[in-house]
């Protein structure tokens, strides 16, 4: 079964673009990254999945059920972290966590305590006195404390320090191993690359590509770094050239043999040919659209 299945999902806000014909599949048990720059339509897609906004066209199914058909049944199985974590002023963290658990008619005190400890969050603090990062932590505990079947996390790590980010991903991986599905949006590609098994890239409301993170890396493009020369060889398929001192680096999508024979004739001191990182793949998919 698929945790999330959208078909030609479209949302328009009057003249403003929301998302356009997004077809996305997140299998149950997956750790899925949803990548795109700010304003690409990540949050819109997520809000559609939660039934917070109604689609202009297309459909969203969560665990096989149309979202608008059974919103309560679906929301019961989801833990959601909004990108902007705003809460009610005047409440303490503990009260907020209890409010969230009460809305689910559950007692999550034990798990909430464990999560607060893991994320180093003091539950007796008042929410309006918390820093951005600590508010985010409170949001994370709200999303995780009831041990849902599907986690939908919108930009979960923005504002968190690196140590807490790592702990957060450890918790998510733990839940994922227990069978839960994770769907997170991010514009930080390295974290998607590190933790997610599948990913989709969205830009300007359109899905550019979707696949396993490993597959997305196999774009036929290599990052070539050469030492000892200051100019990239003039070959077809060379782009994104960066030259610094006697090191030159570029993306290469041409024939490998051609590159090797060209390198043999150059005074190269050192060579590295590697998979480009997701950042570059991201740019690769952009450029395919003729934008970069």
């Amino acid at each position: 079964m698929n945790a999330i299945q959208t078909e030609n999902l479209t949302k328009r806000y009057g003249k403003h673009r929301g998302i356009d014909n997004v077809t996305l599949t997140v299998p149950e048990g997956d750790f899925f990254g949803f990548i795109g720059p700010n304003g690409a339509g990540k949050s819109t897609t997520i809000r559609l999945c939660l039934g917070l906004i109604a689609p202009t066209g297309g459909s969203v199914r969560i665990f096989g059920k149309e979202v608008r058909e059974d919103p309560i049944g679906i929301l019961r199985q989801i833990g959601y972290l909004p990108s902007e974590t705003a809460f009610y002023n005047g409440m303490r963290v503990r009260e907020l966590l209890k409010f969230s658990a009460d809305l689910r008619k559950m007692d999550c005190r034990e798990e909430a305590e464990r999560l607060c400890q893991a994320l180093d969050l003091d539950p007796d603090r008042k929410i309006d006195q918390l820093s951005l990062g600590n508010r985010k932590k409170a949001g994370i505990v709200c999303a995780l404390q009831h041990k849902p079947r599907l986690y939908i996390l919108d930009e979960p790590t923005s504002g968190l320090d690196p140590l807490i980010q790592r702990e957060f991903y450890r918790l998510l991986q733990e839940r994922n191993k227990e069978g839960a599905s994770v769907f997170l949006s991010s514009h930080v590609l390295s974290e998607v690359q590190r933790y997610c098994t599948h990913a989709a890239i969205i830009r300007e409301g359109k899905l550019l590509t979707m696949g396993s993170v490993a597959e997305l890396g196999h774009t036929g493009v290599k990052r070539v770094t050469l030492q000892g020369i200051d100019r990239a060889p003039e070959l077809p398929g060379v782009r994104s050239v960066k030259a610094e001192g006697n090191t030159v680096s570029f993306l290469y999508s041409g024939a490998p043999g051609q590159l090797l024979s060209c390198l043999a004739s150059l005074p190269v001191a050192d060579v590295s040919i590697a998979e480009p990182d997701l950042e570059e793949i991201f740019l690769h998919y952009y450029s395919k659209e003729g934008q970069v």
Partner: peptide, 14 residues
Amino acid sequence: SGHTAEFLLAHPVS
């Protein structure tokens, strides 16, 4: 206006 609607309505309450 307080940006809490998303938090509240993502809970299983109609």
